[in-house]
């Protein structure tokens, strides 16, 4: 785990106003692709490596087609967008999460092709990116394999069907839902890319609580977990579209 030592070696300052957190301006994960990620995904905008941005996931990807990842941001105000990316994946961008009226917490599952840093970059209204993340070890092969729905041949019968569950946790309504979609990366031979492009999480009054833009590395039949205030007008709707123009329009009743 010597990659993590960089976090502490290059920590420039430690701030303890309300909470203690560490920041740095040098990539604590020492990724060979960091410079390219900085320009390609974060537009070379100012970056602070910030441990208020936390990614939770297993150390090793038992199933490279389905790696559970959670992103949590603590004590960071004025969040505009959270971008998840994996430096060494053939398709690096995983998703973008814009939490307009919900907590900056999201969990989902991803495909990885090999061991890679997995990062969350949080853009705040001052225009800077707060980046957190860690290395995920993997045996490989997640992005270039066909989806199981393709093999079974029945994906079109369940496309965009949604199943969901909700419960109360920490005074918040936590909701988990699964959207049926093959999420083909286009990297498996003879199978064109076919993936959910985005969806809005909308309350019963029509206000958009969050927008989630999804890319090919999200696992087949994506599962998302969000925290939603108990006061939100129910039911919640998911409205979105995939890259073939198939629409997602589902209601989560709870």
């Amino acid at each position: 785990m010597n990659k993590f030592q960089h976090t502490f070696i290059f920590a420039l300052y430690v701030s303890c106003f309300n909470f203690c957190f560490a920041t740095s301006q040098v990539d604590p994960l020492d990724s060979p692709s960091w410079e390219s990620m900085h320009s390609k995904i974060l537009n070379n905008e100012p970056v602070i490596f910030d441990d208020r941005v936390q990614i939770s996931m297993p150390d090793f990807a038992e199933d490279p087609m389905n790696v559970p990842v959670s992103v949590q941001v603590n004590n960071l105000e004025n969040i505009e967008e959270i971008v998840i990316f994996a430096d060494l994946n053939p398709i690096q961008k995983v998703l973008s999460f814009q939490p307009f009226h919900i907590k900056p917490y999201l969990s989902f599952r991803i495909k990885v092709e090999q061991s890679t840093p997995v990062r969350a970059a949080v853009r705040t209204s001052d225009g800077s990116w707060h980046v957190g993340g860690s290395w995920l070890e993997a045996a490989g092969g997640g992005c270039t394999a066909p989806s199981q729905g393709r093999a079974a041949g029945n994906w079109h019968e369940t496309l965009m069907n949604v199943s969901s569950r909700s419960w109360i946790k920490n005074e918040l309504g936590r909701v988990r839902f699964r959207i049926m979609h093959p999420m083909d990366t286009g990297l498996a031979d003879g199978i064109p890319e076919f993936y959910l492009e985005y969806f809005d999480v909308v309350d019963a009054g029509g206000s958009v609580l969050a927008k989630i833009t999804t890319y090919q590395p999200i696992s087949e039949n994506p599962v998302f977990t969000l925290d939603i205030n108990k006061e939100i007008l129910k039911p919640i709707n998911l409205l979105g579209v995939d890259n073939n123009g198939n629409r997602l329009n589902a209601q989560i009743e709870n």
Binding site: M160, N161, V162, S163, R165, N246, A250, Q251
Partner: peptide, 17 residues
């Protein structure tokens, strides 16, 4: 509390503005 919802193409979802 598991619930299954169909996509709009099947017409089972209430129409929303």
């Amino acid at each position: 509390m598991n619930k299954r919802n169909r996509a709009c193409e099947t017409g089972l979802i209430k129409s929303l503005a």
